[in-house]
């Protein structure tokens, strides 16, 4: 219970902090940070040498042609395009996809259930396996700078 409680506390504190800076998306930034904190704890548990998330690794994950899952989605870019700030399109269904970059869609990576669901589905479809906590955190970190 303790890690969850301290996470909530951190999120509350972060909410307060962010509110004084950017009232419009105060909750979004805090919610996103809470998700990153959870992934960091998970990554540390998996690898004691975990040294934080990195945007450049996230970008490599985003642009690599994995071709490990569905033929129609060899890479993240198959749906999200090479530009994370652009609208994408689901390569299987044709449905438009909102930009994945946080600058273009500020509520990206703010709902833990949604984030977990999307990584579960998309990592399977692109890499043919689950993503590690390190990979998820790197990806989110990259998108936060986009």
């Amino acid at each position: 219970m303790t890690p969850a409680r301290s996470l909530t506390l951190a999120a509350l504190l972060a909410t307060g902090l962010a509110a004084s800076i950017a009232p419009a998306h105060a909750g979004d930034a805090a919610d996103r940070q809470a998700i990153l904190d959870g992934l960091a704890a998970e990554a540390r548990a998996a690898d004691p040498a975990f040294a934080g998330f990195a945007a450049d690794r996230g970008e490599t994950l985003f642009r690599t042609q994995w071709a490990g899952g569905d033929d129609r989605t060899p890479a993240c870019t198959a749906c999200h395009t090479e530009n994370p700030r652009a609208m994408g399109r689901n390569a299987k269904t044709g449905r438009p996809i909102e930009p994945v970059a946080v600058s273009a869609k500020p509520d990206r990576f703010t709902d833990p259930d949604e984030v977990a669901k999307q990584f579960r589905r998309d990592c399977e479809a692109v890499l043919g396996r689950h993503c590690t906590a390190q990979e998820k955190g790197d990806y989110i970190t990259f998108m936060m700078g986009q």
């Binding site: 399109r89 299987k92 269904t93 044709g94």
Partner: peptide, 11 residues
């Protein structure tokens, strides 16, 4: 390009 598949009604 915007169709992708016959089930994409909205195209």
């Amino acid at each position: 390009p915007e169709v992708v598949t016959p089930s994409n009604c909205l195209a």
